[in-house]
């Protein structure tokens, strides 16, 4: 608990710059809520989960830092995560706030950017670059460069979803990205891609499998093991090539009597 102020400070300084803290404890919700959330008034992310079997540690507190692709880039004591290191890690990450004062002409663009209306922000940034005023021009280019980081981030997410064959994730990312970039060429492109994806049989299977698994997931524990296994095996057989189908096959093994 001694590390709380340090984490809170990192959160205050970098949460707008694409840096997030997920503080994990397996203790019961009431304890977490009274001893950390209320007593220390933390505003960084806190979750209840048991990660002991996946993120092994010989001491607490301990932390891992993952990059934009989910790769571990640091492991150690939280106090060794300095502001300088976070600065370095976040330098190419898509920010959600504009970190310096821009020319007045870009007021609407900055507002749109910070509201997550990236299509609109992009249009304003492009318009500003046609200005005769050098300052407006430069600031327009700067705002566009910030928007471009979001394009890169979404493109990266889509690539990784494609690579792992997770079409549900791909669909969700396309939906979110096209919504945020509404009114821009980039947004239209993603929207078309989403429409194409939704038409494909592979996508239909993937979403159906995910839906069916979600519907029974909470009820599995209350079922007789044999019927839980049967239900899971049915999903696995019906949709063998989907992530949810594979997960169902794995889960079914737990219910072997």
């Amino acid at each position: 608990m001694a590390g709380v102020p340090h984490l809170q400070e990192l959160h205050n300084k970098f949460s707008d710059k694409g840096f997030a803290i997920v503080a994990v404890s397996k203790e019961d919700a009431g304890t977490i809520e009274s001893k950390l959330i209320k007593a220390k008034e933390v505003t960084y992310g806190v979750v209840k989960a048991d990660i002991g079997s996946i993120y092994q540690t010989r001491g607490i507190p301990h932390c891992w830092v993952l990059d934009a692709d989910g790769k571990c880039i640091f492991e150690g004591h939280p106090s060794s995560v300095t502001e300088q290191s976070v600065e370095e890690w976040t330098k190419d990450i898509a920010p959600t706030k504009v970190d310096r004062e821009l020319a007045k002409d870009l007021k609407n663009g900055v507002k749109a950017f910070e509201a997550g209306e990236l299509g609109k922000a992009l249009a304003e940034a492009k318009e500003a670059q046609a200005s005769e005023d050098e300052l407006v021009k430069t600031d327009g280019a700067y705002l566009e460069s910030l928007v471009k980081k979001h394009v890169d981030m979404y493109t990266g997410k889509m690539e990784s979803a494609k690579k792992s064959g997770d079409l549900v994730k791909l669909g969700k990312t396309l939906e979110e990205a096209s919504e945020k970039f509404k009114g821009s060429e980039q947004g239209d492109k993603w929207k078309d891609e989403l429409k194409e994806l939704e038409k494909s049989d592979a996508y239909k299977d993937t979403t159906k499998a995910a839906d069916e698994l979600e519907k029974i997931r909470d009820k599995l524990e209350d079922m007789r093991p044999s019927s839980a296994r049967k239900k899971l095996e049915k999903i696995a057989e019906k949709y063998p090539d989907t992530p949810a189908g594979k997960e169902a096959a794995e889960l079914a093994k737990r219910y072997n009597e």
Partner: peptide
């Protein structure tokens, strides 16, 4: 997956949803 969460954006229920950001996972206890 998160069993429960505080100060986390609505709809975010698992770690993978942090792709695109730098995320610091801190294991802690009271």
């Amino acid at each position: 997956k998160f069993d429960k969460s505080w100060n986390i954006e609505e709809g975010v229920t698992e770690l993978d949803q942090y792709r695109g950001k730098i995320v610091m996972i801190e294991a802690w206890a009271t």
